[in-house]
Amino acid sequence: MIARKKSVFSGQSAIMLLLFIVMSIITLTPFASIFLASLRPGKEIMRQGLGLNLDTSVMTFNNYIYLFSGESDYFIWYKNSLLITAVQTVLTLFVSSFVGYGFAMYDFKFKNFFFMCVLIIMMVPMEIIMLPLFQLIIKLRLIDSIWGVVLPFIAGPMPIFFFRQYLSGLPKDYIDAGRVDGCTEYGIFFRIILPLMKPAFAAMGIFIGMNSWNNFLWPMIVLNSKEKLTLPIGLNALITPYGNNYDLLIVGSVFSVIPVIILFMLFQRYFIAGMTAGGIKG
């Protein structure tokens, strides 16, 4: 009787396992097809679309050779993307944690009103104010500059929300202890609180960094000189109806995704913490 019941259970497990294996295969198929395509001549991709077929007789590493030959702007885009991602991540982390600390640790007049403002930004798609924001960036002479891309978003609502939640969980004794020891209000933040926030920085840093690395529309609008383009903009520019750039497009895409996947595998815990930060824990 018990043995039979057990076999039913393992039968259920097997079905569930099968379901997730199928789901995983479907999820990984686009990755596989783009990787296989990087070994095929670009013209063929253009004519045939992406598939899972690989004709070994025309298999070629030319795309990779071309990528590393330095004939294209690819690594300029790469460098620009790295720079923007680094600047945006560091600045956003710093500013948002500073602001989040203010919301978490103090009671002050209009606190709820200001926090409501944070939530409102979270609710409004940025594309709505894109036109006047662009005009403003021109007026401020930030056009075609990394600062035009980064500055409007360094007080990100998500990070502020996250840091506020995180810091609310810290005991206020730290602050009192700091005050007793003669720290200024800012000294408490910089000397006592910042070092305590490393896990929060890791989680949010990955979240911000990933979004910045993949950011497309706003950088495309702000940046226009050829030597300042980022990876997504550069790759997008390769998609022409003539398909003469598909070699670089495909192999370049593979190389833009690989570092993110490696980072994800190394720091999966922080990725997950960053993604689920949106007030879920409540």
Partner: peptide, 27 residues
């Protein structure tokens, strides 16, 4: 199942464009 979230909309978008191609050889 989380991996696709790491891919930019540019790369994901054109990958699906070619997967959903109208040619009989598209995936």
């Amino acid at each position: 199942l989380f991996l696709p979230a790491l891919v930019s909309v540019v790369v994901g978008g054109f990958t699906f464009r070619l997967i959903f191609g109208e040619m009989p050889t598209a995936l």
